[in-house]
Structure formats: structure tokens, C-alpha cells
Design a protein around this nucleic acid. Structure first.
Lengths: 372, 372
DNA sequence: CCCGAGCATGCACTCGATTGCAAGCCTCCC
DNA sequence: GGGAGGCTTGCAATCGAGTGCATGCTCGGG
């Protein structure tokens, strides 16, 4: 070698760059500073190859590494290992208040374990979902947390078939053998119906969420079976086109025309707000004329006019749990899919009241109704 | 080499893996399939080296590439180019309703240009911010969009000094020569004061945001100078410890004790909700006893009880604009920092009314008040 | 005292794509 | 017909870290 010593870093200095970013030290830098081969430095710094290196050397390398402020380049590592310590998170729309707490939970748990999250919005569009999914795939994400599942979702079936690690959160897909974390829709709706019957309602309607989503279907089913327990049937039921305020309003207008419910169970809080709008349109008042119940207990939903009675779903915990399941799967700790149902609670507020011209029945919580 | 031809892909098949992910085709695969050298394939597929390759070859390579479903491995590319087509987004807390629209705007604009966003929450903790910042740095993000700026922020000064590309959004940092996109706080507050004076208020108080944030300070300054234009001075002003409901309540209780304002301008909507809480505590009613105004016009804030008068800030557009500035900077299209002020509008709702025992003055919008 | 076992370390190749440089071919013109 | 120049393409090194294999050293036993 004719190269004089100390010329180890051949990156030529840029001619006239004002203040370029100082290059981070690499593994080679650490190695030469510690007087060892890069391979040795690599092994010394790596948890599960450390045993191959003499303890004294390990110590020296580690000290040099911290002294230089070395941290491995995740890109280079990913290239070699095919893992990126990154997971993809798909949500319909982060602007929908249900999702920020979920995402926050996911990110918090991931960060705690050295992972980072790549988030994308799909707007419930399968095509956008597929695009984002592929883009994340290309970026070598190790797995996915999916809040956008459709009841029948070819994209997910396909991916699951290829063995892509993923966890569904909030929503499910039928016949898909992957882990999922959701709120207990059935119990939630059941509590809602208990509450309304308690208040004396018998003509209860339902503004269901879109039938393309598991939550839409599950809550509608739960609604019907809860009514059956009281020998009641739905005053009317209309399915909204989307989980949005506008769709809720449209559906509610239809519902009010179809039956004449004294109470309405909405598929989620946004639909419930749409119901408020529809009542406004018709000059009706909630809860005096019609009681309304939502689902999810979004932030600030208790401060609406009137405060919305809703079912609280522990969104943050949903996110935490989903992230936990995914990392368990990635680390090989657990291999069989698990379905986790998180408990929900009914939060009674001002949007529910006895039906017009009636007094509330008094009844023990959860007990069977005494026959008429 | 004794290796028979056709053995180009030496990855041995795993023994008993049920359904592994099919390996994505690489550039080499495309190259051999097209009968060219990988380097040629690379140039053919790359926008700005394409001119070096014979058009017929380009076409052949591109066809083979799409036939094989090739897409470049961003990890490998990043390693070589030191760019990742990824930008880091720092927000205090995605759970705060102000931020989702901003993030959404950022992500939408980035996605449209082939970039992706890495989001992290800092909880306004400089230490967490530094950690996240470093983690993103390690992941080779090309630049940052920062919604967590503190008024005096060593982290940002340091990074800016090193030439790290970044754009501030929503908040600013003093004496920092980087691009920033914010709502026009000064005009917003000015409109608020106009409106309150219009209604007949003269004893106006302020619950200011934390003085560690530019928005806290800027809005307070704007508040005082707006009052001066009417020869008024603040009935009282208290600085909240954080932009949270709880901090707003505490500050408001103090404020009500200090002065006896008939109207209160809150530093943002969350603080305004805290003001509602405080009024509740004391058995006062808004707007009958005290008018309250917020800032930001968060989603659903108009559906509160009472509907909050607030200043609408175009958050989504803030995000879009911030992303645009950053990408302009990254592409070298624009090099000098720019400050963008987006226009805001006052949205008058039910939380503001004339002061107790007074009728509203009628006054032309924005005109100087007629002296006493 | 010598040889073998075993531990510690170094060497070199790899992941997938990019890019400076070299080489080949063709064409055009003298 | 021959040479020069330009257009295409190939070669090989590189980014930073991980890893199978080879090598060297040390220590212990015979």
C-alpha cells in the first residue's frame, strides 16, 4: 500500500460547502479506533454474537463506540438482514378522531422496543390500501398493523397467505387466520340496548355502519340479538354508506321516515353526530323527541350538545395490544394467531332520556325483563 | 467455477418453511432477463441517466421490469445515495386534534411525490424530541417537518447549524433561519378582539399558551396590541403551563379571581375548553356571564356546549405547504428559507355574547373605534 | 517438548443498487 | 480505406454492516 496512514476515509471534502452534515462514525471507524477488524467490532457490538469475542475486547470496542457516539446504520443493517425494525400502520384517515389514540398506542409500544412506525391513510379505498401496502413492503417493513380491514379483503387474504406478519386492530376480516385486537362490540351494544330499554324505549332503530366493515356488521347483529332478548324487534334499521357524519345524516333521515323510533343506536360516534344533524333538519330535539347513542366515545364527544351517550372503547390500549401481538409474532415468541377482545363500558350522558310521554322503568342491571 | 449455469440465485430454499414470502425480483434479475448488465438496467430505469442508454434498450428493460413486477429496493438505494425519500415529522401529540389534519396534509403531499413520512410524538419533552430526532437521523431521513418547535430550541439551532433541511409548522423558533409555515396569529387575535369589543366588552382577559412556545407568546402580544388599538388594557392575563384542558382550567380559575373579565380570549381551543370547566366549577355560565373564544377551530369544536367561537386555521393546508417547502428545499429548487403565513378567519358561534347587562355596540368591521 | 484442541480474530464476500471509468462499436468524414 | 469521435454498454468499486470460513494464537496434556 502506498497510501500513507491516516487516509482511511477517502470521501473528498466538498469544495465550497458551507456547513455540511458531519458524517456519522461507521463500524470501520470504531474498529480502527479500537484496533480491531470491523468484523470483530460488529460481533462485539451485537448482542448474540458477543460471546464469540473476548470480554476484554468487547469492553474496549464498546467504550470506543460510545466515545465516538457510534450507532449502527439501520439502512445498511436492513439491507443485509432483510429486517428494518419498522412496521407499517394502515388507517383509513388519521383525521377521524378514533384513530389517533390507536396510532399513539402503537407508536409508544413500538418505540419502547426500538421499532418505528410508518403510517399511511387509505381513505377506505382498496386501491390506495394496496398501493400503500406495496410501498411499505418495498421499504422492508417487518409487519403490519391494519386498522382498515374490510370484511372481505383480498389484499389481506393474499398477504396473509404469503405469510406476511400482521395484526388487525379495531376491525376484522372474515376467515382470516391472523391476530386481531378489537373492542367488545357485542357487549357494548348489549349494554346500550339494556340502557335504552331501561329508560322505557321499545321502538329502537339502528343506523348501522357500512356492511363492508366487520364493525358495521357485528354491531348490527349484536343490536338485533340484544333486542330479541327483550322480545323486541328493530323499529327500523338503515345502513350508512360510510362511517361519516354526512352518511349518518342521510341514513337517519331515511330511518326516521321508515319507522318512528324513540331511540336510535348509531354504528359509531360520527354517525351519531349525523343523527343529530338529521334531527336538526326535521326540527326534532335530542333527547326529548329521540334518544341517540354512539359508539367509541371519541375525545370531546361528551362535550357535544347534547353530550353523547356512547360506548367507551379503550383505543390507546387497542394500539398497545396490537403492537405487542405483532412484536411477539416477529420475535417468534408467539406463533399462533390470537384474537383479543378488550372490554368496553357504557358511558351514559345527556343524549338519552325516557321516550316522549313515558317514565323510566326501574330494572336491575342485566336482569331479564319481566314480561309485560 | 464448477457451478452449472442457471444457478444465479444462490439463496438456498429453507427446509420446512410453510409459505415464505416470495423474493422480489432485483435489478440483476431484470438485467439478465433483458440481456444487459445490471448497470445498464439501472441507468435505463433511472430518470436522469436514461439519456445515456439507447432508446430501444430502455424500452426493452422497462418492459421486462414491468413484466417481472420489479420495483427498486429503497433500502439498497438509500445506502448508496444517502437519501431515503423519507422525512421525519415531529408532533407533540397526535392525540391533540390540531395535529391530525396537519400530519394528513404533510403525508398527502409527500405521498404524491414518492416520499413517505416517519411520525413521532414528543409530548413537548425536549429529551424525547432529541431521541426521536436522532433515531430519524439514523434512518437517513432527508429532512424534517417540525411541529414541536420551542421558542428557544437548542436542538433545532444545532441541527439548522449543521445544515439539516427542515421546515417548522404551526410554531416557530426565535432567530432560526429556516422555513416556517404558520397561521396568522396576529390577524386572528386582532379579529377576536374586534369581535369582543363589537359586542361591548371592555374587561377582556387572556389565558395565554405556555411562554415556551411561539404561539403562546405571539398570541399574547397580539392580544395586548389589539387591546391598545382600543385604548384598553388587559383585564387580566394568566399563562397556562401547557396547551391542555387541565392547564386551561387552572389558569382560568386564577384569571377569574385576578380580574373580573366579561370575556376571555384563550390561547387555543383546548385552553378554551378548560375555561368552560372553570366556569362550570364556579357555577358561571358561558356566554351569559363570561364570553370565551378559542383558537384553531378544532374539528367538532362547533358542536360543543356552547359552540365555541374560534379562529379557523387551515391546518391541512399548513401541512401541505410545509411539505411543499421541504421538498422544494430538498430538490434544490429553492434554497433560501421562506416564512409563510396562512390566512385565518374568525368563526363566530355561541360562546360569545354581549357582556352582562349591556347591548352590543354596532361598529363597522375593522374600523377604528370612535373615541369615548 | 511437541502437538492438538479450542478460542479469538481476520478475511472476504454478500445484501441491491449506483456510478466513475474504460472499452467496444459504429458512423462519418477526409 | 482509415482514423477520430461519440454513443452504448460493461466492469468494478462502493455504500455500511453481517457472517461463513480460515487462520493464528494459547494453553494443556501426553
Amino acid at each position: 500500500m502506498a497510501v500513507p496512514p491516516g487516509t482511511r476515509r477517502p470521501r473528498q471534502a466538498p469544495i465550497a460547502t458551507l456547513s455540511r452534515v458531519a458524517p456519522r462514525p461507521t463500524l470501520r471507524d470504531v474498529a480502527t479506533a479500537a484496533g480491531v477488524h470491523p468484523a470483530t467490532a460488529s460481533r462485539a457490538l451485537n448482542e448474540d454474537t458477543r460471546s464469540l469475542v473476548r470480554p476484554a475486547t468487547v469492553e474496549r470496542v464498546r467504550q470506543v463506540a460510545t466515545a465516538l457516539g457510534y450507532s449502527p446504520n439501520p439502512i445498511a443493517r436492513s439491507l443485509k438482514t432483510n429486517r428494518s425494525e419498522t412496521v407499517g400502520v394502515l388507517v383509513p384517515d388519521i383525521t377521524n378522531p378514533v384513530f389517533p389514540p390507536i396510532v399513539r398506542g402503537v407508536e409508544d409500544f413500538l418505540a419502547e422496543h426500538g421499532y418505528t412506525a410508518l403510517t399511511a391513510n387509505t381513505d377506505n379505498d382498496p386501491e390506495r390500501a394496496a398501493l400503500n401496502f406495496a410501498a411499505m413492503q418495498a421499504r422492508q417493513v417487518d409487519g403490519y398493523i391494519i386498522a382498515t380491514a374490510r370484511r372481505d379483503d383480498p389484499l389481506l387474504h393474499d398477504a396473509a397467505g404469503r405469510g406476511v406478519p400482521m395484526v388487525l386492530v379495531n376491525r376484522q376480516t372474515e376467515g382470516l387466520d391472523v391476530s386481531a385486537v378489537t373492542g367488545d362490540d357485542s357487549v357494548g351494544i348489549s349494554r346500550v340496548v339494556d340502557h335504552l330499554v331501561d329508560l322505557g324505549h321499545t321502538r329502537i332503530g339502528h343506523v348501522a355502519g357500512p356492511s363492508s366493515t366487520s364493525t358495521g356488521i357485528a354491531r348490527e347483529r349484536a343490536f338485533r340479538s340484544a333486542l330479541e332478548r327483550y322480545d323486541l324487534s328493530a323499529a327500523a334499521a338503515v345502513t350508512a354508506q360510510a362511517f361519516t357524519e354526512a352518511a349518518g345524516r342521510t341514513a337517519m333521515l331515511e330511518l326516521l321516515e321508515a319507522g318512528a323510533p324513540t331511540a336510535v343506536v348509531a354504528g359509531n360516534d360520527l354517525l351519531a353526530i349525523g343523527c343529530y344533524d338529521a334531527l336538526d333538519d326535521l326540527g326534532l330535539e335530542c333527547p326529548r323527541d329521540v334518544s341517540v347513542v354512539g359508539f367509541n366515545d371519541m375525545p370531546f364527544i361528551g362535550r357535544l350538545r347534547p353530550p353523547l351517550t356512547s360506548v367507551r372503547v379503550p383505543q390507546y390500549e387497542l394500539g398497545i395490544e396490537a403492537a405487542r401481538l405483532l412484536l411477539d409474532r416477529l420475535s417468534g415468541r408467539s406463533t399462533t394467531p390470537r384474537s383479543v377482545l378488550l372490554p368496553v363500558t357504557l358511558v351514559v350522558r345527556g343524549s338519552t332520556a325516557p321516550p316522549p310521554g313515558a317514565r323510566a322503568r326501574r330494572r336491575g342491571r342485566g336482569s331479564a325483563p319481566s314480561p309485560g
